[in-house]
Design a protein around this nucleic acid. Structure first.
Lengths: 147, 147
DNA sequence: CCCTTTGCTTATCATTTGATAACAAAATCG
DNA sequence: CGATTTTGTTATCAAATGATAAGCAAAGGG
């Protein structure tokens, strides 16, 4: 396969993903949280419970800054901290009731937008999309600290 | 197919794409430009010549802020402005010689990083990835201003 | 020829984000 | 036990980004 073309395809693809998600999420964000706070909430929502270090790693944010943003989210009653019995330095972070509600609404909106995008897809198309997501996630866009 | 699981997959996938591209581009950015300036340069690189309004639209940035960032890039000798003969209000923006060099190096680095990510992939894997990119780009992450 | 619109600029201010130093408590290890 | 590492906090400062008001020159339309 032509490496140059392949790489070009990858770059335009990532640009497209950014463009589409930006379009969709900008309608989603409540005006009470900042973009970074939204992405933290999103991460918590799909990965909870998580520790502060995990958020810091995943969002490429320093511990102090992560701690600060989390404190703000806490003050806004959108997430909660729980000490971990086995290691009392750590804390598990989960969405609060309100946080769950907010993120559920956000996801519902995103869902609607995506539905609109795939409304012309057949069942086979959907299965194909499903498999493509698996392939790309596992073979290209996997997360890896070691790289 | 379970809709809930499907959208969960979509959301985590887009998050993964963001994280990976963030990881890769953060190594690329010279310390002389900010993230936003980088993304402007990237846009100019693939779309030049562009007008200030086009950048403003595409980057979802207000005209005044776009103007400011462009002025900084100009002072850093990374891009140049040319008045348009047909409409002297407009200006075409292009990368300067230095800007071209910088972006070529950036793209080369991104290519290397992606290659590293797929270095364990077999030829069949690559073909699968290639097809998955096509599927997702055409059926989900297509660009459409009208949506 | 006025009047409006378009494309862009400058200035200013508030907020968000990034970076760093200094600290503390719990765990781990020799 | 004492030293070190891990996990997280608080405080502070600098820089980047977002938002808004005011202005200006060229283009276009009646």
């Amino acid at each position: 396969m032509d490496k140059k073309a392949f790489f070009h395809k990858l770059v335009t693809f990532t640009a497209a993903v950014h463009q589409v998600t930006h379009e969709i999420t900008k309608e989603v964000k409540s005006n009470t949280i900042t973009p970074i706070q939204y992405s933290i909430l999103e991460y918590i929502a799909v990965s909870q419970p998580v520790t502060l270090s995990q958020i810091s790693d995943c969002q490429h944010m320093s511990m102090p800054n992560t701690s600060r943003e989390l404190k703000k989210l806490n003050e806004k009653k959108l997430c909660e901290k729980f000490v971990v019995a086995e290691d009392r330095r750590k804390q598990y972070i989960r969405l609060s009731k309100e946080g769950e509600i907010m993120m559920n609404e956000a996801f519902k909106h995103i869902e609607a937008r995506f539905l609109q995008r795939i409304k012309d897809a057949s069942d086979e198309d959907l299965e194909e999309i499903n498999q493509s997501l698996d392939v790309l996630h596992s073979k290209v866009f996997y997360s890896s600290k070691s790289l």
